[in-house]
Simulated assay, not measured.
Amino acid sequence: MSASAPVRLRGRMREAERLPEPPRRQPVRALGACALLLIGSLLLPLSLATVWARSELTDTDRYVATVAPLAANHTVQDAIVHDVTNGVMTHIRLDGLLKAIPRAERAALLKRFTRGLREFVDKQVRQVVTGRSFPEVWTGVHRAAHRALDDSLTASGDAPVTLDLTPVLDRVRHQLAGNGLGIDIAHRIPRMGAEVVLLRSPDVPRARLAYRAVRTAAPLLPSAAAVCLLAGFLLARRRRRALICAGVGCAATAALLAAALDLLRARALDGLPAVIPRPAASAYADTLTGSLRDGVWLAIGAALATAAVAAIGPPAVRAARRLSPR
């Protein structure tokens, strides 16, 4: 009887020896499976980030729908009221109205009159910003800004990208013109619109390169990540262990992406000019990246659930079979 022929031991058949695989086959196979699983785990968060960036940068309707709820956000409304009121007050000169007042009394009267006028303008601007028609104005402003951004990133040149607040000022001018004292104020507001710079000219070339990289990578990275994970799982000899490792690895890399988002958010807010209110910028950043954060936490949950099922599932099934009555 040959050495590899089955023999009977305690009523069961087993092989006395197994034919060994080629000496280098098992290590190479294991290394290949580990490398594929590692690459797939690293590509997962990159896939999430590029798909999110591509959808927000290239789809105007999606972007507008994302930022639409900010029109009712109190911190954003307060920031708009503050900025627009400051813009209106810079074009109002009261010195000519106080010529008949003695010079010694002008400073105190001018300060008191300016404070009262600012409160009046602030109230009128707030009525515009909190009115029923403001969400439509907000949507129109951001739709125009996103189209300008898309045109700037897809064309040549380095013209800055701005957020044009002319529609808001038009509503404010109309509101002031219909409120007694506001008639003179409305005529003092210039017809030119106010603009907020979203992307400066020196930053446009770098943003264009990132935009093109995102558009190229977004369709490829998810497929590459899925192929690497599947190939690593099929190549592994111990597939249950491979599934556990893949789940833990994907959860870990997704958690690193979540931490990177928090770090980038903090640094971006710290780098903003002092004139931009931090609460409003925080609300905008959280709203814009909300879908990405949801995707990251969904990926973490799915990866951990997969690893848990792979680790607990087979032993639990075997234990249930042993305990079940025959």
Rank of each mutant, 00 (worst) to 15 (best):
R238M: 08
L149Q: 05
V296H: 09
L44K: 07
R321S: 15
P22R: 01
R103H: 15
A186T: 02
D170H: 04
D270K: 03
A194T: 11
A3I: 08
R103L: 14
V51C: 09
L257V: 08
R322P: 11
R126H: 03
D164E: 01
D170P: 04
A159T: 15
A194D: 13
D294A: 13
V248M: 05
G131D: 02
A53K: 07
R326T: 01
P160M: 12
V67T: 02
C245S: 10
D286C: 08
A260R: 04
L209K: 06
L43E: 13
G96C: 09
A242M: 10
A107V: 04
M89G: 14
P219I: 07
D95T: 00
L292E: 13
P219L: 07
V309F: 11
Q77C: 00
M192G: 14
L48A: 05
E15K: 15
T60K: 00
P273R: 10
A53C: 08
D170C: 02
L292H: 14
E119M: 13
R106H: 00
Q124D: 04
G182I: 04
T253I: 12
Q124R: 05
L298A: 07
S291T: 06
D203K: 04
R322L: 02
S2F: 02
L298S: 10
A177W: 06
S41N: 08
A242C: 08
I312A: 00
V296E: 07
G40H: 10
E195C: 01
V296S: 12
A65S: 08
P315V: 14
Y284G: 07
I80G: 01
I39Q: 12
V125Q: 01
P219C: 04
L243M: 06
V88E: 02
A268C: 06
I276D: 10
G32C: 13
R54C: 11
A307C: 11
R10D: 15
T139C: 15
L209F: 09
D270R: 04
A155P: 08
A213Y: 15
P69M: 03
G295N: 15
A100I: 03
N73D: 06
D184K: 14
M192V: 11
H142Q: 04
T85V: 06
E17C: 03
V227A: 13
A226F: 11
G301N: 14
R212L: 07
L261K: 01
A280K: 13
D203N: 05
S41K: 02
H74P: 01
P273C: 10
A65M: 03
Q77L: 00
